[in-house]
Amino acid sequence: MALNTPQITPTKKITVRAIGEELPRGDYQRCPQCDMLFSLPEINSHQSAYCPRCQAKIRDGRDWSLTRLAAMAFTMLLLMPFAWGEPLLHIWLLGIRIDANVMQGIWQMTKQGDAITGSMVFFCVIGAPLILVTSIAYLWFGNRLGMNLRPVLLMLERLKEWVMLDIYLVGIGVASIKVQDYAHIQAGVGLFSFVALVILTTVTLSHLNVEELWERFYPQRPATRRDEKLRVCLGCHFTGYPDQRGRCPRCHIPLRLRRRHSLQKCWAALLASIVLLLPANLLPISIIYLNGGRQEDTILSGIMSLASSNIAVAGIVFIASILVPFTKVIVMFTLLLSIHFKCQQGLRTRILLLRMVTWIGRWSMLDLFVISLTMSLINRDQILAFTMGPAAFYFGAAVILTILAVEWLDSRLLWDAHESGNARFDD
């Protein structure tokens, strides 16, 4: 018995066209964080690309023209004298008006014999932002004059995390709450300039795509075929072959399989920071003279006294001054041990922890910024005066060393310790 099946006739004509040209192939790229070699397709503007294995951002879609970056830099340069030299806060102490600005706080630190601690604050609040705007201006002028731009481009990517104007702005709020127990506070004209400078700096850093600047100024022929001998440069993120001198053909720094002496430098910085954190938390970090009496505060006791007036601000200072430094030390110690013992479990967790400490590390400088600003506000000789204690130097040095330890660690070593050939990683 035959089955009668109805015929289905399409209502619209289906047209099949042959592909007349070869589909576009992607360029081969190595991930600078996990060293995976993959094919990167062509990316349009405002599109980002991520590593298929570790999800690290390979290409950032946010990109401004150099002219727009230069305009932002010149605007920031105009704001800087007002943000640093004009009063941020006014207080009335014992019937006398006192003005506080950024430069005055750094000068008070240096004047009291601790120039190293003052230079830490100076670099993060004044030096690094000033280098940022002058570097962008150098790129703008240098591109037109045919100057060598490689050193500036190499420095810009590392400079971003040292620009800490946003953290200093939080420190202004913390210092205001600490001082309000002794005097009446009012915002100064410099505060508005400083807030504007923070906003412009944040926007500029978020749109400063150094890798795209490398592509514009020093374009290189990408690798179009897969080759395990391809290496990625950690300076400019170019994937290719080393030249005859073993250097990256684009930025001219040595092109090595792994960062040289990464573990040794990381261990040295980490152990030194552990040693410095002990006096930083045991010795007094601030000293207040009130009517001839002397009151010393460690980091913890200062947080407890701050909690009596504002528990939320005390929580912020606790996280930045105690929780973050010790968390960074514990995480980095764990990561280094996992590399030495070739741990194969929990790779995803370790990668996330490394990215976390990379982002939060700079916030530990908050305590030094609060001390710097408070020193310029309260300084009335023996009637009422505020000065920093010996722990300030140890704390600042420990924070900087932990930042350097994270920067010096080559994250690809975590993958080397893991089993080879993993296309995915999980716990």
Rank of each mutant, 00 (worst) to 15 (best):
L3G: 14
N4R: 09
N4K: 10
T5W: 10
P6C: 10
I8A: 11
T9H: 12
I14P: 12
V16W: 12
R17D: 10
E21S: 13
R25F: 10
Y28M: 13
Y28P: 15
Q29S: 10
P32D: 12
C34P: 00
L37M: 15
F38S: 07
F38K: 03
L40A: 12
P41V: 13
P41M: 10
E42G: 11
R53M: 11
R53V: 11
I58Q: 10
G61E: 10
L66K: 11
R68A: 02
L69K: 05
M72G: 04
A73I: 13
F74R: 00
T75C: 15
T75F: 03
L78N: 12
L79I: 12
M80K: 05
W84M: 08
W84G: 10
G85F: 07
I91S: 01
I91K: 01
L93N: 01
G95F: 10
I98Q: 08
G105M: 02
I106K: 01
W107S: 15
Q108N: 03
M109N: 05
T110V: 07
D114F: 13
A115I: 01
I116Y: 09
I116E: 14
T117E: 04
V125Q: 07
G127R: 00
G127D: 02
G127N: 03
I131M: 02
I131V: 10
L132I: 03
G142V: 06
N143G: 14
R144C: 08
M147Y: 04
N148T: 03
M155Q: 14
E161T: 14
L169I: 10
V174C: 14
I177M: 14
I177S: 10
K178A: 00
D181I: 01
H184W: 13
G188T: 11
G188Q: 10
G188S: 08
G190S: 03
F192C: 09
T202E: 15
T202H: 15
V203M: 06
S206A: 15
S206K: 15
V210C: 12
E211I: 13
W214T: 14
E215P: 13
R216I: 05
R216G: 09
Q220N: 13
R221D: 10
A223I: 10
R231F: 06
H237W: 08
F238E: 15
G240T: 07
D243V: 07
D243S: 05
L255H: 05
R258Y: 06
R259F: 07
S262K: 02
W267R: 02
I274F: 12
L276N: 04
L276Y: 04
N281L: 03
N281F: 02
L283C: 04
N291I: 15
Q295R: 06
T298L: 07
I299Q: 13
L300V: 04
I303N: 08
M304C: 08
A307K: 14
S308V: 12
S309N: 09
N310R: 15
A312T: 14
A314S: 04
G315H: 10
I319S: 11
I322W: 06
V324K: 02
F326N: 11
T327Q: 06
T327R: 01
K328W: 00
V331R: 01
F333Q: 09
T334L: 15
L335I: 09
L336S: 06
F341E: 06
K342Q: 09
C343Y: 15
G346K: 14
I351R: 14
L354S: 12
R355F: 13
M356T: 11
W359G: 08
W359T: 14
W363C: 05
I371P: 04
S372I: 05
N379S: 13
N379A: 04
M388Q: 12
F393A: 10
T402K: 06
I403L: 13
A405K: 04
V406P: 02
D410E: 02
D410F: 00
S411A: 07
R412N: 00
H418D: 14
N422C: 15
N422V: 10
